[in-house]
């Protein structure tokens, strides 16, 4: 008895039987799910039933269709339907699985969205990589192509300098040499940036004398600072190792970029380079290089962008460079 009640509750209340004649007119319906008037055309109930005409004509005796959406006056039903050819018409047995299919829809929605999102991300990444490759190839070729004529110009400039020049010509020669050097540095920076971007920059560790290296920087930048009426102080801890294994060239590139930048934006006062020993473990050492200046400084809100490529905070500054220095550093 109890099972009968459950059957009534969970099965019978979700299943409707409709019998239609061969022209699609409703002969009988138990109206469990929705009202279908006897004598009305089932074809007019919903476009789905309009397709039943073809089933009358087909050879199939029994057809099962799952997950059919019917939007009716009573609401939305998602049904499984069994269509049976009987004497004089069709018997339609409709099971309402709206709740079940709505849960399934959520799972499918999440799965499909995830698959599509992944696919579009992969496509986007491939496009970006291709663009990046093209850009890097272009920059590398471009830089190489420019280097050759520049080398010739520099060589000819050197030859020209050894000829007899008057005061005005000597002055022009100095400008020419400065411009050549700047252009050469710019090309090297562009090439370095492109190699860093494409992951092709190789760090080449070699033994070098760190103290000699710092002495060289001190000598060079004291001269540069003096030219601008500034002072330059270089100091380092006594316990930093003399001999290190590392990429001296890249360390030089990073520090000169930072120091040039400090000199560029300091009109009065001092630029300082300080090197400290952070820690030493086994045969590895961690050093802290600090560059300070008494220039205009950087406001905290600009911190996130200062290492961006071609980003210059003071683009109207006459001494502004190419915007690559800090990005490389």
């Amino acid at each position: 008895m109890m099972l009968e009640q459950y059957r009534e509750l969970y099965i019978n209340k979700n299943t409707q039987f409709i019998f239609v004649d061969q022209k699609g007119f409703v002969q009988e319906s138990d109206q469990v799910l929705f009202d279908v008037k006897s004598g009305s055309s089932i074809f007019e109930l919903h476009p789905f039933f309009e397709s039943l005409g073809a089933i009358f004509e087909g050879p199939e005796e029994e057809i099962d269709l799952n997950c059919v959406h019917l939007s009716l006056q009573e609401g939305l039903f998602i049904i499984d339907i069994k269509i049976l050819k009987k004497q004089g018409g069709l018997l339609l047995i409709i099971h309402d699985f709206t709740q079940h299919y709505n849960s399934y829809r959520l799972v499918t929605q999440a799965r499909n969205e995830s698959v599509i999102k992944t696919e579009l991300t992969v496509i986007k990444n491939l496009e970006l990589e291709e663009r990046e490759r093209f850009k890097n190839r272009f920059i590398q070729n471009f830089s190489h192509e420019l280097r050759n004529p520049l080398t010739s110009i520099m060589a000819i400039t050197d030859l020209l300098q050894d000829t007899k020049l008057d005061v005005e010509q000597s002055q022009m020669m100095r400008f020419l040499k400065d411009s050549n050097s700047n252009l050469k540095l710019l090309l090297e920076d562009i090439l370095s940036m492109s190699m860093i971007d494409s992951g092709r920059l190789t760090i080449i560790p070699k033994m070098f004398d760190l103290v000699d290296f710092l002495e060289l920087l001190k000598f060079t930048y004291q001269a540069k600072a003096k030219e601008k009426g500034l002072s330059f102080i270089a100091s380092w801890d006594g316990d930093i190792p003399d001999i290190l294994e590392g990429d001296r060239l890249r360390l030089f590139q990073v520090l000169t970029n930072l120091l040039d930048n400090a000199l560029k934006y300091t009109e009065k006062g001092t630029v300082t380079l300080n090197v400290k020993l952070n820690q030493k473990r086994a045969n590895r050492v961690s050093l802290r290089f600090q560059v300070k200046d008494t220039g205009i400084g950087i406001s905290p809100e600009d911190f996130p962008v200062i290492f961006e490529i071609f980003k210059q905070l003071n683009s109207n500054n006459q001494s502004a460079g190419n915007g690559l220095g800090l990005a490389i550093a």
Binding site: E50, N66, Y101, I116
Partner: peptide, 12 residues
């Protein structure tokens, strides 16, 4: 807004 279709929707 992408809304997944399950089963079949029929319109006319």
């Amino acid at each position: 807004n992408y809304k997944v279709t399950i089963g079949v929707h029929i319109t006319k």
